[in-house]
Amino acid sequence: MAAGGDHGSPDSYRSPLASRYASPEMCFVFSDRYKFRTWRQLWLWLAEAEQTLGLPITDEQIQEMKSNLENIDFKMAAEEEKRLRHDVMAHVHTFGHCCPKAAGIIHLGATSCYVGDNTDLIILRNALDLLLPKLARVISRLADFAKERASLPTLGFTHFQPAQLTTVGKRCCLWIQDLCMDLQNLKRVRDDLRFRGVKGTTGTQASFLQLFEGDDHKVEQLDKMVTEKAGFKRAFIITGQTYTRKVDIEVLSVLASLGASVHKICTDIRLLANLKEMEEPFEKQQIGSSAMPYKRNPMRSERCCSLARHLMTLVMDPLQTASVQWFERTLDDSANRRICLAEAFLTADTILNTLQNISEGLVVYPKVIERRIRQELPFMATENIIMAMVKAGGSRQDCHEKIRVLSQQAASVVKQEGGDNDLIERIQVDAYFSPIHSQLDHLLDPSSFTGRASQQVQRFLEEEVYPLLKPYESVMKVKAELCL
Rank of each mutant, 00 (worst) to 15 (best):
S448W: 13
E48H: 01
S454A: 12
E463W: 14
I249Q: 10
N421V: 08
D32H: 15
S261K: 08
P281G: 00
P100A: 06
M299V: 04
S306V: 01
L311T: 04
D317V: 10
R14E: 13
D332Q: 03
S474L: 14
C99L: 07
S434N: 13
D216I: 05
G214P: 12
V465Q: 15
R188P: 00
K229I: 00
L341C: 14
G54Q: 03
Q356A: 13
F460Q: 02
T58L: 08
I369V: 13
T354S: 11
E370V: 03
M299S: 11
Q397S: 14
I122M: 09
R171D: 00
T244W: 08
P318L: 05
M389N: 12
Q325W: 04
D117S: 03
K35L: 08
C172G: 11
D223R: 01
S395D: 12
I237R: 11
C98F: 06
L258V: 08
T154M: 07
V390S: 07
D192K: 10
Q285V: 12
G451W: 05
R14C: 15
K367E: 11
I403Q: 02
P298W: 00
A431K: 13
D73S: 10
Y21D: 02
E64F: 15
L183T: 11
K187S: 15
A335C: 12
E79V: 10
A344N: 00
I72Y: 11
H93Y: 15
N353T: 09
F282W: 12
D215H: 07
Q210G: 12
V390F: 06
L461Y: 07
W39E: 09
K134G: 14
I139S: 07
S257Q: 10
V115F: 01
H91W: 07
C483E: 15
R270N: 04
P446I: 07
D87R: 00
V198P: 08
F345P: 01
K35T: 02
E50H: 15
L469M: 07
A163T: 01
G104T: 11
V475M: 14
G54T: 00
M76H: 15
G418P: 06
I72P: 02
D430R: 06
F433P: 03
I369N: 15
Q63W: 06
A322M: 12
L423Y: 08
R14S: 15
T158G: 02
L461V: 15
K82I: 12
G393F: 05
C113Y: 01
R33G: 07
L222T: 05
M278L: 09
I62E: 00
V138I: 09
N71W: 12
I373P: 03
L132S: 13
L461K: 07
E250S: 08
A410Q: 02
G419K: 15
P318H: 00
L258P: 00
L307K: 14
L130C: 10
V115L: 10
R426V: 04
D422F: 15
A78W: 02
K367L: 03
L307I: 08
A146H: 07
E81Y: 06
F36T: 11
R309S: 09
N185A: 13
K402A: 11
S447V: 14
Q286N: 07
S207I: 12
S438T: 15
E60G: 07
L84N: 13
L346G: 07
L108F: 05
S19M: 02
D6C: 07
D6H: 00
L44D: 02
I427N: 07
K477C: 12
T321K: 01
L135H: 06
R459L: 13
L355C: 12
S334P: 01
